[in-house]
């Protein structure tokens, strides 16, 4: 229940420039986004083979969103703060410090659970945004001589036949390094049109082993099922 004099207020972050909403705003990345609203999520299909960064019209590789530092990612966002009217600062002792971030290039928004400090609210909104970017932003994978990137190898079970021993122990969903691996896995699954069997083959796993990995994390399972359903396949249970 919010009192009437509060409102969500969009603000630039710490004076960082936020691009204005216009279609040309991301032109400097030379990319085009295809917008597929599907059950509330957005898929962006980009051809990774076009990604050489030296050419003038190189394609912005979405995977790089996750590689950005917090400040860099923040610069691509608009922040909404649950704000009460009034001058704030020393005048005020109130903690409506909920933070909502809108990632402008993708339109994805993430809201933080409320913490006791503003700083941590921002940090948890950013962490949620990273998870959503991994789940919702798709890159097309080049399947010719496919070899999985290290971040994907790290989340595979040890029995994968293509997983080199120097990869270390398997990284699970509670580790923040799981996100980039999960993103790479979803990219692969969506590129092979949702087939778990085909994906498993490319990763040196049995279909059963890959299914168990997918089902081990709710968010991952739901994202895989979104992909499968969009390709007319049955969801994994």
């Amino acid at each position: 229940m919010a009192s009437a004099n509060m409102l969500w207020n969009s603000a630039k972050i710490l004076g960082f420039p936020v691009p204005l909403a216009s279609n040309g705003r991301w032109a400097r990345f030379g990319c085009t986004f295809r917008h597929h609203p599907f059950e509330g999520s957005f898929f962006f299909n980009l051809l990774r083979s076009n990604c050489s960064s030296s050419t003038a019209n190189s394609v912005w590789n979405d995977k790089e969103y996750l590689a950005l530092s917090d400040e860099e990612l923040m610069r691509q966002c608009e922040m909404d703060t649950f704000k009460a009217s009034g001058p704030g600062g020393q005048h005020r002792n109130k903690r409506e410090s909920a933070v909502r971030l809108k990632h402008i290039p993708t339109g994805i928004t993430a809201q933080a659970v409320e913490d006791r400090s503003q700083h941590k609210n921002r940090a948890s909104a950013l962490a949620r945004l990273r998870a959503l970017l991994a789940l919702k932003v798709r890159n097309l994978v080049d399947l010719e001589d496919y070899s999985p990137p290290p971040e994907l190898l790290q989340i595979l079970p040890l029995k994968s036949t293509i997983r080199p021993p120097e990869c270390g122990p398997q990284i699970g969903p509670n580790n923040s390094k799981f996100l980039p691996g999960m993103q790479a896995l979803l990219d692969l699954i969506s590129t092979v049109d949702g087939s778990v069997a085909d994906t498993a083959k490319l990763l040196g796993l049995t279909t059963g082993a890959l299914s168990r990995l997918i089902l081990s994390d709710d968010a991952l399972r739901m994202a895989v099922n979104d992909i499968r359903m969009s390709k007319g396949m049955k969801p994994l249970k």
Partner: peptide, 12 residues
């Protein structure tokens, strides 16, 4: 010399 806003957008 610069004016910088706070997290709700008030020049602070």
């Amino acid at each position: 010399l610069k004016i910088v806003s706070d997290f709700v957008g008030i020049p602070r």
